[in-house]
Amino acid sequence: MKRLGVLCSAVAIIVLFVPGCSRPSVPDEARSDPEPPRLYQSVKTVTIPYRLFGHAKKAGGLLYVSVCGNDEGIIDRIITLDPETGEEEIVITSDNDIAWLEVSEEWIVWETNMDMYAQPRTGGERLLLGGVQAVFGPVLEGSLVAWMNRVDDDRYQLTVRDLNGGENRVIAENNHPGLYNNFVHIEGDRLLWTDIIDNTGFYRVASLRDGTIEDYPIQDTDFRFPGYAQLSGDRLYSINFDTYIEWDWTKQRFGYYSIPDGTFTALRDKNFIQAFRVSGDRVAILETGHRLTLMDAAASQQAEDISKAFGTIFDSLDCADSNTFVASLASKPGEPKKATLYLISVR
């Protein structure tokens, strides 16, 4: 029975049987080369009745999305969507603009333009993790949240906290706080961020078990200041810049640093990219023209043009969970408010 209540509304859900699943059979003799294996398992599209939204995350079989539920352009609530039934529910409302959202099976963490909070996903006490714009871009894995914490204007500390009763733990100081250096990434028990020390760009990887830090300087390249770094095994993917004075987004090199080899390999030589996300051995890249490419992070570096497969470019890219990328496309001004989320499962 359809659930009553003001918090529920219908969302259109379309499961796409991806072209790869239903590729027309081609006689073996007609094939010149075997087709490479697909890099994703399935794609599901979910349409939400909001044009303006922030982040979309998956946990507990639900999709959590920070959305603008008013006419004021403020992202003021976090909703859940059941991808199977379309049922929508408001789980968190905020007086301030919700700038960031992370969700795990255990916790919801969100940053407003003032504070950062955590709340057990299935209910419980809300925790205030930081106030007065003291936090930046949290990441969440299980119950472990990490973020760049502002101590004072020029002092930022990489901070982690086990939300299951733990206290804030400072892992390291950020030597050169700035937009490109302030994003952190967790893979397993490793924490990655970037920094600039003595005019040298560094990847810094901390062990969350024993607190040790390994530094990987970038040398012998024009693009030696990494930012937005993310881990995939022994590869550190990042967008690298040639200067940190008047940072130029359009002058960048996207690629990876190989820890065993100690070298940076550029994956894009000319065009800048808009964004990338890493999920295990898959890398999703939002190209200059907002086309989406999926890449195998393993040695083959096989790439798949998702935009070509689905005939669309995308507005944004994010990781919905450890197995799923989410790319979105919002309706244009003048059209009914909606956004389509493409949930791209890679394993």
Partner: peptide, 8 residues
């Protein structure tokens, strides 16, 4: 300072 700066 995380955001502040001069950008192209």
């Amino acid at each position: 300072v995380a955001y502040r700066g001069i950008y192209w």
